[in-house]
């Protein structure tokens, strides 16, 4: 867990290339590897927005969030863990239906059809 902490856009020092936009599912997520870390990247086509968070679910510490169902709750974009359906805000990382610690979330930017995720190392 210590490997993951939220990065705000102004803290980004490195933009990691995640892949072409077409390599990501529409309305769901996929996972990338950054060193030893796994980061889940989601594309919400209805709002045309991208989000990224740690792939590790804080509930049982399994690397699975990128395979979860996405959705929205009161306007907040979220992902549901495939293991026990804990849901997390993709904006703040907060656990919306329980008291798991929050996820680390990362900024995402698109340039020339390529997806980049911001980290600070």
């Amino acid at each position: 867990m210590t490997a993951y902490h939220t990065i705000l856009p102004e803290q980004v020092t490195t933009w990691v290339r995640a892949g072409r936009t077409t390599q990501f599912p529409v309305g769901a997520g996929a996972t990338i590897k950054v060193g030893d870390r796994q980061i889940a990247v989601f594309y919400f086509h209805r709002t045309d927005r991208w989000y990224a968070c740690q792939n590790l679910c804080p509930h049982k510490l399994e690397n699975v969030l990128g395979r979860g169902l996405t959705g929205e709750q009161d306007g907040v974009p979220k992902v549901a863990c495939p293991l026990h359906k804990r849901t997390f805000s993709l904006e703040t990382g907060a656990n919306l239906n329980g008291d798991c610690p929050p996820l680390a979330v990362y900024p995402v930017t698109i340039r020339d059809g390529e997806v980049f995720v911001g980290i600070d190392d």
Binding site: P25, V26, A28, V64, L69, T70
Partner: peptide, 17 residues
């Protein structure tokens, strides 16, 4: 992508993913 997560990958997810 709208399937429940087990159906999306046509298999039951287990403890360690």
């Amino acid at each position: 992508v709208i399937q429940d997560t087990n159906d999306r990958f046509l298999a039951n997810i287990q403890r360690n993913g």
